[in-house]
Design a protein around this nucleic acid. Structure first.
Lengths: 228, 228
DNA sequence: CAACATTCTCTTGCATGGCAGAGACGGTAG
DNA sequence: CTACCGTCTCTGCCATGCAAGAGAATGTTG
């Protein structure tokens, strides 16, 4: 990433700050709980504190950082309970998306899903976990966008950002045998979508998300901080 | 909520601005499409432009206003398509909440729901639409909070704000016979929740939301601006 | 040595002022 | 009368400066 740091600084400066910070957080480049100093960020980006401050404020409403007044801005560290809730929502939204996509019939996203599956099969065959993780992200993305509901998509993106999912998915796939099973579940979902069987597609998709969650939670160190 | 509007201006000033502006928008006190000038708002609240600006930025991420760079900040007017999408999400979330609530068993929210129904029956009997509209809001609120999922609740609130639902619900209930039917549907949902029949509760809840939407769209002038 | 009060520095919160771009208005030429 | 162009005012955007609260470090006292 970090594309476009050179030259094209034409765009609104503060949007760039937001995008950059969000990228760092969801990629796990910054540890949860870390302090984000307005001043330090301002100096790093070569701008004043004001746009940085506004960027952090927006990231707060997205649930990525927590601003404790007069104290500091910290990267949010989801509690175990929050992670459970987020997965519950993920299951809900992706299931609904699968149903909606099945109802829509043949749309471009379907073709791209099949292409995605082909590449995923190859990645699993050569045990290329990084590539497969990437394809998993694309798969779920395609299902969501294929639902053709911008609001659902927006809420989904917020959700995934809060989960820092791109960091978690590798953990989930490190479980032996998980990539293969995940791939098979993806195939089944697409198959049901092609058959326009919305009910089953939703059901299988939800079960897939639950399985993914189990694989994740099992291989996660996750200090049992506060369960409250 | 909305407690402490009088006197105690001790709290962070900008949070007050956000709450006040949000209230005005979702109550319909400000017409959609209207221009919100930073300067004018700052003078009205007796503060500087900075906190007002940050407040507007937050409202933008909540989807309540649209900031067109170098032009101005405007109250968003959801297109017909967006309204459809929002209701699709509403149906999804409330259905899921009903299911989750049914699974939880006997919790305080259940008692409050039954009390709500009793008062709603009375309101319908004396044809008190304003009071019934209020109770409808409380009913759906109880179902959501009863699901015991903070993330779901947060997304739901965002949704309802974007819909400016409190303004719409009166329109919906102005259809002859609608309050009575709505009340009966509420009764059925609670009944199914009490029986711990999550599947049926979700299904009936979703159907209820669809019916509510139909009653609303029918009685809505809604200039067919852009369907894109 | 331990517990407490105090200062001191760090952080964000808010106010103010200058700047640039977008759109509206009016004047002028055809 | 119409179309075009320059100007002018409006808007948000960003930089800077001051103030206030929170927490840590430290000096003080038992």
């Amino acid at each position: 990433m970090t594309a476009g740091t050179g030259g094209s600084a034409n765009k609104p400066i503060q949007a760039r700050v937001i995008a950059e910070m969000r990228g760092r957080i969801i990629s796990g480049e910054i540890d949860p709980g870390a302090l984000l100093s307005e001043l330090a960020l301002a100096e790093e980006f070569g701008v004043s504190r004001t746009p940085v401050r506004e960027a952090l404020k927006q990231l707060q409403t997205e649930g990525l950082v927590e601003i404790r007044p007069r104290v500091g801005t910290f990267v949010t560290a989801p509690s175990r309970r929050e992670i459970t809730e987020l997965f519950e929502m993920k299951e809900l939204l992706e299931g609904a998306a699968a149903r909606l996509l099945a109802r829509r019939g043949r749309v471009p996203e379907i073709d791209r899903l099949q292409e995605n599956l082909a590449q995923a099969d190859a990645a699993v065959a050569r045990d290329d976990r990084d590539r497969y993780a990437e394809l998993v992200g694309e798969f779920h993305d395609l299902v969501i966008t294929g639902a053709d509901n911008r609001k659902l998509e927006a809420h989904y993106r917020t959700l995934m950002n809060q989960l820092a999912y791109s960091r978690l998915v590798t953990t989930s796939l490190s479980r032996p045998g998980r990539p293969g099973q995940s791939d098979r579940e993806h195939h089944l979902v697409v198959e049901l979508i092609l058959e326009k069987d919305g009910d089953s597609a939703e059901q299988v998709m939800r079960e897939h998300v639950r399985a993914s969650r189990r694989a994740l939670m099992a291989g996660l160190p996750l200090p049992g901080r506060r369960d409250d």
